[in-house]
Amino acid sequence: MLAKRIIPCLDIDRGRVVKGVKFEDVQDAGDPVEVARKYDAQGADELVFLDITASVDDRPTLFQTVEAVASQIYIPLTVGGGVRSCADVRALLSAGADKVSINTSAVENPDFVTEAGDRYGVQCIVVAIDAKRVNKKKEPPRWEVFTHGGRRATGLDAIEWAKTMVRKGAGELLVTSIDRDGTKSGYDNELLAAISASVSVPLIASGGVGDLEHLYQGLATGGADAVLAASIFHQGTYTVGEAKQYLAGKGVRIRL
């Protein structure tokens, strides 16, 4: 049977891996090829690159980075950040990405997801959903979709939006809890479970991992098919291999 996937996420700014807390205090964390190679050697099942470069003028740098990594790393590579058109999708796929992640532009134009999926296959279209709890205390849980790095509210209900995106052709969903991102307090498993039960495509959990039990809970309680984490791997708290051993010890089916 299929293994659950462990996915390190790398933030890329002008061709370098950077790390920071909630887009602040961004520090250089190395050469993308070196970092990708390290995670590959540790047994990462996939890699996600998020381009956080502000300027579109720096876009060619991203393509060069993707090309350099894809020519050396033989595991799937997803690239997101600023994907706005089929031309962007094609450029990233030609540079060597296996999947592209679409976020803000899916909200602005849901048909873009359909168009990209029809043209390049739904298996390479990941829709990223940034969700925030908006219910008042004692109300049933409710989450709203935010865009622009969590700054802009959309008025969309996250569960309904997830269903819409799958209907529109998303092959996979990457769900980030804005409340948990950077907190190291674990995924929002209630959010994950609600989405996982509502859609038929694989779900990647994101936002909030501080220890290995959080990864387990994302799979066991959240029902995710893959778990994404950044800082626990970048800061060297755990290797991907340690994470996999931990999960395997808990009875999760893992590629070791």
Partner: peptide, 12 residues
């Protein structure tokens, strides 16, 4: 959440 999803995506 435990049901098998389509596409079959990942390592097997």
């Amino acid at each position: 959440a435990d049901r098998l999803k389509v596409p079959h995506m990942g390592w097997n």
